[in-house]
């Protein structure tokens, strides 16, 4: 029971990270119907930028951890958003109206490019950071097993919840959110009634990248290490989360992210940790076969 509870907490933390990345996939798919394969690598770039920014702040003498974390959050979100914007501008915008698979292939190229760019710029070794947020609360102690909720887990879950609420509010009640929903329903029609579709799509990428950057920071803090390759597997899992929740649906992405986090954690805890990626990938395949619209997705109508 205690073990289960502990795994539940770990799973929710991991799931929060996946959920933040999954939002980027689901938004882009919802609006322009492409799988932004490079999104996982944007997440990795966000983590790296946070790492560099943090070390830079330390070097110029900002040592108070809360202040440093806040500044790192801002810097990493802004710069990663810029990466998201640039990637869209260079690799996806010229391809609008090209054949169906072109953006996906371009995105794969972008993903390879970003991985190697970071590898060349910062080296291939795993970069590790000493734990910044320490301390834990003991929730339950049965003598044999102690259930802990660490402060970092609290930070991750709280930040994710706040961002999700903020983001849901943005989509439902701001001008930009309305534009985004309009584009999602019908890009051409939205353009006809005066929505600046190019700008909306750009902003979608910017917001998705900013959220991925937060996920990258959380990943860095939680695991204390990052390397240039983490984006690939994390990206596929976050995409799985988006598909599981129903691609195109925001609550779906959040739900899917949490579910994937939980499934992965429980699988590692009770079966085998070597095959945890297999578990996540198998879920992707099973969901797509038996429930292609996901849990909260709308069925897709095939048009001629």
């Amino acid at each position: 029971m205690e073990y289960f509870l502990q795994q539940l907490i770990n799973g929710l933390t991991l799931g929060s990270i996946y959920a933040l990345v999954a939002i980027g996939y689901t938004m882009v798919y919802g609006i322009i119907g492409m799988i932004n394969f490079a999104h996982g690598d944007i997440f990795m770039v966000g983590g790296f930028l946070a790492l560099i920014a943090f070390l830079g702040l330390l070097a110029i003498g900002v040592t108070a951890v809360p202040l440093a974390l806040f500044l790192v959050l801002i810097v990493a979100m802004l710069l990663t958003a810029l990466y998201g914007w640039t990637v869209e501008r260079i690799a996806y915008r010229p391809l609008r109206g090209s054949f169906r698979l072109a953006p996906l292939i371009s995105a794969i190229g972008m993903s390879i490019f970003l991985q190697n760019y970071v590898q060349i710029a910062q080296g291939a070794r795993v970069k590790s950071l000493p734990p910044l947020v320490t301390g834990a609360h003991v929730l339950m102690d049965s003598g044999k097993f102690v259930v802990q909720l660490t402060n970092i887990q609290i930070v991750i879950i709280v930040t994710t919840t706040v961002l999700m609420l903020l983001f849901s509010w943005m989509v439902s009640s701001t001008r930009l959110g309305r534009d985004m929903r309009a584009c999602e329903q019908d890009l051409k029609m939205a353009a006809l009634v005066g929505v600046n579709t190019d700008r909306t799509i750009s902003l979608t990428f910017v917001i998705g990248a900013a959220l991925a950057a937060v996920a990258g920071i959380m990943y860095l803090l939680y695991y204390g290490a990052i390397d240039f390759f983490v984006g690939f597997v994390a990206g596929v899992k976050a995409f799985t989360a988006a598909v599981l929740g129903g691609i195109g649906s925001l609550p779906g992405a959040m739900l899917g992210g949490l579910m994937i986090g939980l499934i992965e954690t429980f699988w590692s805890a009770y079966f085998s940790s070597e095959y945890k990626d297999v578990a996540a990938f198998s879920i992707l395949i099973l969901v797509l076969i038996f429930m292609p619209t996901g849990i909260l997705g709308r069925p897709e109508v095939e048009k001629v």
Binding site: S106, G109, Q115
Partner: peptide, 15 residues
């Protein structure tokens, strides 16, 4: 730089 150029070339071909 091999893979870097490879990735960039993939994008370039598509564009």
């Amino acid at each position: 730089f091999r893979m870097l150029i490879f990735g960039a070339a993939m994008v370039g071909i598509m564009v």
